[in-house]
């Protein structure tokens, strides 16, 4: 597990995320997949200004790390980088990014889906819409 944790990075950032991490150049990685969650301009047909994220830290950080480490081992991945916003993320900004390095494409794609499904079940992060106009 120690070796696994060396290949997992979890970062919680105040506000929207900056640029994506650099693509690995280690001679082993054959697939580098980056998923970005972007704040949409509407939710349930109503205009949004932003999403407001609240996290229960450090539990959120620890659960994200545990899921990433488990997914990395199960799929034999090279590296996982998880970035999540807390606080306000305006429309059009990136609030979540998952970057996965793997020797092969298939493992990376499966791992991506599995990580996000698990995150949405058990990581204590909540989002609340910030409406452009108060709902009637």
């Amino acid at each position: 597990m120690h070796k696994t944790l060396e290949n997992v990075l979890v970062v919680m950032t105040q506000g929207p995320l900056d640029a994506a991490p650099a693509r690995p150049n280690d001679g082993i990685t054959g697939a580098w997949i980056v998923f970005e969650g972007i704040v949409r301009m509407q939710e349930d047909g109503l205009d949004l200004c932003a999403l407001q994220y609240t996290a229960y830290e450090p539990m959120a950080q620890r659960v994200l790390t545990e899921i990433a480490a488990d997914v990395l081992e199960r799929h034999g991945l090279q590296r996982i980088v998880v970035e999540h916003a807390r606080g306000e993320a305006p429309v059009g900004s990136c609030s979540f990014r998952l970057s996965i390095a793997s020797a092969h494409r298939k493992a990376a794609i499966q791992a991506m889906d599995q990580f996000i499904d698990r995150m949405k079940q058990s990581v204590p992060i909540w989002k609340e819409p910030v409406w452009a106009a108060a709902p009637a």
Partner: peptide, 10 residues
């Protein structure tokens, strides 16, 4: 102690 309700990260 924390109450963890339906989460919504991502």
């Amino acid at each position: 102690i924390a109450l963890i309700t339906l989460v919504g990260g991502g």
